[in-house]
């Protein structure tokens, strides 16, 4: 049986996904160096077609699309990752408590989860951002609030199956406390599906963030890919690059995350992909 490393990095789709993600992350980190201009700064006349001087052209107000792209990568990634971390943390807690303690704790927490799942998530996110007034924080909160239920359900299912294993009974027999058993014995063994779901959640978070920004509900003073698509959409017939360039960036990033997530899944559960 080859190791996790071999299975993960031996997969060409994973390599492709990781390459693009690595590029996006590096660009996001080095944004101020790659583009000294502030993304909202007017640098040239509007609607310049991509050229050597302005590699991705300029938008309807004469702002550099390149600057928007690299600074937007920052905004998009930071918001998506923070939102994912928040929803994974909350979802894991809810799912773990529900699965481990069962009984009325499970009933209560799962009814709460279902309550959140019954509301169409994107509309719920719009409502949340509108109530909280658009800002980076409210975007993160909104995305986290609509995306934790699936995590809670995945973790609950895993905890239910792990807690029936004999090593958990052995821990009970030597007198370990419930919370210690949950965090030391049970949760570490639910990690692999959690990692896969969590990584795919980043992709969803990027899409939600872009969609909210597209609708003008994004963080007002931060450039983001969704905002760029939204701002350029009225000029689609005259200046295709305003929409296409950030759109392709969103597409490639989401696709890469999905490829890496699936690669993780195949590498963590080799039997499923093998036989």
């Amino acid at each position: 049986m080859n190791t996790f490393r071999q299975r993960f990095f031996g997969n060409p789709r994973v390599i492709g996904g990781l390459a693009w993600l690595g590029l996006v992350i590096m660009v996001a980190i080095a944004a101020p160096l790659l583009s000294p201009h502030h993304p909202f700064e007017i640098v040239a006349q509007p609607f310049l077609i991509p050229s050597v001087e302005h590699p991705f052209g300029t938008d309807s107000l004469g702002r550099s699309i390149w600057a928007g792209l690299v600074h937007g990568a920052r905004t998009t990634l930071v918001i998506a990752i923070l939102a994912t971390l928040a929803s994974v943390a909350f979802g894991t807690l809810v799912g773990a408590l529900a699965g481990y303690f069962g009984g009325w704790v499970d009933d209560g927490l799962m009814r709460l989860t279902e309550f959140f799942q019954t509301i169409p998530s994107f509309i719920f996110a719009i409502v949340l951002v509108a109530i909280l007034t658009p800002s980076a924080t409210s975007l993160i909160v909104a995305i986290a609030v609509v995306s934790w239920p699936p995590i809670a359900r995945v973790v609950r299912g895993e905890v239910l199956s792990v807690k029936a294993r004999e090593y958990v009974q052995a821990a009970v027999l030597v007198g370990q406390e419930d919370m210690a058993i949950l965090f030391r014995q049970v949760l570490p063994n639910t990690l692999s599906p959690l990692i896969v779901t969590g990584s795919l959640l980043v992709a969803t978070a990027i899409l939600v963030e872009s969609a909210l920004s597209f609708l003008g509900l994004g963080a007002p003073n931060l450039m983001s890919w969704g905002f760029m698509v939204g701002a350029g959409r009225s000029f689609l017939r005259d200046a295709w690059w305003l929409v296409t360039i950030p759109g392709v960036a969103i597409l490639l990033t989401v696709l890469s995350i999905n490829l890496v997530g699936e690669g993780l899944n195949d590498a963590l559960n080799p039997r499923l992909s093998d036989l």
Binding site: R165, Y167, P188, N189
Partner: peptide, 15 residues
């Protein structure tokens, strides 16, 4: 103390 049936499920794989 107890000795369990399934040697593959009775030891925590991460410890």
């Amino acid at each position: 103390q107890m000795v369990f049936q399934d040697p593959f499920a009775s030891l925590n794989p991460r410890h």
